[in-house]
Design a protein around this nucleic acid. Structure first.
Length: 190
DNA sequence: CATATGATGGACT
DNA sequence: GTCCATCATATGG
């Protein structure tokens, strides 16, 4: 079952924590690829110096101000990064998906990554977009409506410890731990 | 136009 | 651990 609008229209930290253990799916050209989310980061608005929404709206970040549940894809250091917007209209926020445990379409993901070790398929924010073939074509998609790009509840009972840390790779972070990951999972990026 | 800038990854020591 | 190739955007002339 897909996560609905209500799931995303909450505080970013809450959404980031709750996304752990859910499955991210992307279908394209009859091929399905995806996996279990094991690492996320929460971003806020003007008060968050690390956020794309801390400055003015641009063509790329403008949908952080829209309703929750919209995909936000942009390029950093030659890699596409995949986020989902949180909160309601006019409250900017997003959650970055940083790592997955590969589940669906392992063979197609190996080809796209030109790597065969499971460990290196989706264990980082730029790696998972390559593996799932997420680019700016998948930007600004309503993931509560799409049948090709969405997040669904796991069908197995989930029980895991959540680890936290500061966010990775940001030059100016808040005095809060806004990175969340499934403790002891081998696909967490670092 | 030209250039600076990353919410990174991979190769290497 | 260190180094640097990467490339779409944003911004200023």
């Amino acid at each position: 079952m897909k996560l609905d609008k209500k799931f995303y229209e909450r505080d970013s930290e809450r959404v980031a924590r709750k996304l752990l253990g859910k499955n991210l799916i992307h279908k394209q050209d009859d091929k399905i690829a995806g996996g279990r989310i094991v690492e996320t980061e929460a971003y806020y608005g003007k008060e968050d110096p690390a956020s794309r929404a801390s400055k003015k709206k641009t063509k790329i970040n403008r949908h952080m101000w829209k309703k929750g549940g919209i995909s936000l894809v942009y390029m950093v250091h030659g890699n596409w990064l995949f986020n989902i917007t949180t909160e309601g209209p006019d409250i900017p926020g997003a959650v970055l998906i940083r790592a997955l445990e590969p589940i669906h379409g392992q063979e197609i993901m190996k080809k796209r990554r030109t790597r065969s070790e499971l460990k290196h398929l989706t264990s980082g924010p730029g790696k998972l977009t390559q593996a799932l073939r997420i680019t700016k074509d998948q930007n600004d998609v309503d993931v509560t409506e799409s049948d090709n790009l969405y997040i669904e509840y796991s069908n197995r009972e989930e029980s895991f410890r959540i680890g936290t840390s500061n966010r990775i790779g940001v030059s100016e972070d808040l005095d809060r731990e806004l990175r969340f990951f499934v403790d002891d999972n081998r696909f967490v990026s670092c």
